[in-house]
Simulated assay, not measured.
Amino acid sequence: MKKIILCLSLFILANQLVLAQNSSEEQQIIELSNKKWEWMAAKDTAKLSDLFHDKSVFVHMGGAWGKEREVNIIAGGGIWYKKADIHEVSVEIIENTAILLSRITLLAEVGGNEVTNPFMVTEVYIKMDGDWKMGSLSFTKLNSPG
Rank of each mutant, 00 (worst) to 15 (best):
E114A: 10
N15I: 15
P145H: 02
D44S: 02
L106Q: 10
S102V: 05
N34I: 05
E25N: 09
R69Y: 10
E109W: 08
T105F: 02
V91L: 05
G112Q: 02
R69T: 14
E25A: 12
L19G: 07
I30P: 04
D54R: 12
V115S: 05
G130K: 11
Y125K: 07
S49N: 14
L6C: 13
L142Q: 12
I73D: 13
V91F: 05
H60R: 13
W37H: 02
F52G: 00
S33K: 14
P118D: 03
D131E: 13
Q27T: 10
K2G: 12
I99Y: 12
G130E: 04
Q27R: 15
G76I: 01
K47E: 08
I99T: 03
H53P: 08
N117P: 05
I29A: 04
A84R: 02
E114K: 10
I74V: 13
E95Y: 10
K47A: 07
S90C: 10
G63C: 04
F58T: 02
S136R: 05
N34P: 03
E70F: 10
F52A: 00
Q28L: 01
P145F: 08
V121T: 02
S138F: 02
I73S: 09
L17Y: 12
K3C: 06
I73H: 08
M128D: 14
I29K: 11
T97P: 01
N72P: 14
C7H: 14
S90D: 12
M1L: 05
G146T: 08
I5Q: 13
R69F: 09
G66K: 06
W65Y: 15
E38I: 14
R69G: 00
S24A: 13
H87T: 15
T45I: 15
E92D: 09
I30M: 07
E92G: 05
I86A: 01
E123P: 00
L17V: 11
W37E: 02
D44V: 08
E114W: 01
E114F: 03
G62I: 06
E26F: 08
A98D: 09
K133I: 06
V115T: 15
M120Y: 10
A42N: 14
E25L: 08
S9C: 10
T140F: 01
L107Y: 08
K35G: 05
T116Y: 02
A42L: 10
L6G: 03
W132E: 09
K67E: 06
S136C: 15
T122H: 06
I4R: 01
Q27F: 05
Q16Y: 14
W37A: 09
K127G: 01
A84Q: 01
E70G: 07
S90K: 04
L51I: 10
Q16C: 15
M1A: 02
G62A: 14
S9P: 11
S24I: 06
V121G: 01
C7P: 04
N15P: 11
S23F: 04
